[in-house]
Computed example of a mutant assay.
Amino acid sequence: MGRKTKVAISVGAAGIAAWAASKAVAKPVVRESKKALEFDNPIVLANRGGLFGAPENTLSAFTNSASLGVHGFSVDIRLTKDEEILVFHDEYIDDTTNLAGKVADFTLQELKDSDAGYQFTDENGAYPFRGKGEKLISLKELLDRFPHMFVSINMKESPDTYEGSLMPSKLWRLIEESSAEDRVAVTSSYDEQIDRFNLYAQNRVATGAGDDEVKKSYAAYASQFGHLYNPQADMFQAPEKLGIFSLSSEGFITFLSKLNIPIYYKDIDDENAILSMINNGAAGFITSKPELVMQVIHENTSE
């Protein structure tokens, strides 16, 4: 046996020994249950209220989705000029209203006075909501109007911006004033924003995984050291794939489930893909087509 072979065997043996030792000592860190996430069957969250039935982020969109029987909404939030929290996704509002500029350039009232149906078209290319009084909605209004709905709230602004620096504290204050701690979850692409929000919330609100947390969790799952993973989130909202890696496999879903972490998949509108993920243990879906996803779930679960 050559020297290189002996070294390789020794290194491999050392790795196995390290893995066995860590496996014997480490115990999985299971997340504490959050009331907002307690569902018996896969759920449907209408993305921005549902993008195809009515202008996104408007009362019409949320009301329409609620009438379908969805379990809740997935919304993005931004801060206005007068530091109110608006339900809105992009930094600029040009493609949604008859105004032009950044959300942060306008007060909440100015944004609510705009024509939120301005750019919405139906399948025939018509503008059925233009000039019909469609309004954007604040997060407070959404929580007040739909007290029975679960709402997943995504903080869009970077923590490096002025608006982003204020958002975690203002969001926590609003949730607390609305007594909505047990019916919302808070997330962001920026892990730092979630951490800053939780400094105020102190684990009283379910929190999601930022981009780095998702990558870290998958790396732990794909390695032989998943038992060392210490999750920092109560839920995941994720696409079907992370690059070439599948986040919707039964193995990964089971890995998170054992840690008491449900995973909700975004933008999945294909019936076969939805059914496959349900069978793999997906906790739910964030979709622009809630009617389709609800039909698949009703036909394939005991709900």
Results as ranks from 00 to 15, higher is better:
Tyr127Gln: 08
Ile244Cys: 04
Ser189Gln: 04
Thr96Ile: 09
Ala209Val: 03
Val205Arg: 01
Glu303Ala: 14
Gly133Asn: 08
Asn203Gln: 10
Ala283Ser: 13
Lys81Met: 01
Ala20Gln: 07
Leu242Ile: 11
Glu123Gln: 08
Asn260Gly: 00
Arg173His: 13
Gly117Phe: 06
Asp82Arg: 06
Val70Pro: 01
Leu45Ile: 11
Gln202Thr: 04
Asp160Leu: 13
Thr161His: 06
Phe52Leu: 13
Leu259Met: 02
Leu139Ser: 03
Asn64His: 15
Gly2Ala: 07
Phe225Thr: 07
Ser22Asp: 05
Ala66Gly: 06
Phe252Tyr: 15
Lys112Arg: 09
Gly2Phe: 04
Pro42Asn: 07
Tyr264Trp: 00
Ser288Pro: 01
Leu136Val: 05
Ala209Thr: 04
Leu174Tyr: 09
Asn300Arg: 13
Met294Val: 02
Asn154Pro: 00
Tyr92Gly: 01
Phe39Asn: 03
Thr121Glu: 14
Gly50Met: 14
Asn124Gly: 10
Leu143Asp: 00
Ala24Trp: 11
Ser152Gly: 10
Ala54Asn: 12
Tyr92Ala: 10
Ala283Leu: 04
Ala238Gln: 11
Ser169Phe: 04
Phe52Lys: 11
Lys258Pro: 00
Gly131Gln: 07
Lys81Trp: 01
Glu141Ser: 09
Thr187Tyr: 08
Val103Ser: 13
Pro168Asn: 06
Leu99His: 07
Tyr265Glu: 04
Ala219Tyr: 01
Ser288Leu: 09
Tyr190Cys: 01
Lys289Arg: 14
Gly125Met: 02
Ser65Thr: 11
Thr97Tyr: 06
Gly49Arg: 13
Ile137Cys: 12
Val205Thr: 02
Ile93Pro: 01
Pro128Ala: 12
Arg204Glu: 12
Val214Pro: 00
Ser152Asp: 15
Phe73Met: 06
Gly72Leu: 10
Asn154Asp: 15
Ile268His: 06
Glu192His: 02
Phe225Met: 12
Gly117Glu: 08
Asp122Gln: 04
Gly284Ala: 04
Ser302Asn: 15
Ile244Ser: 14
Gly69Asn: 06
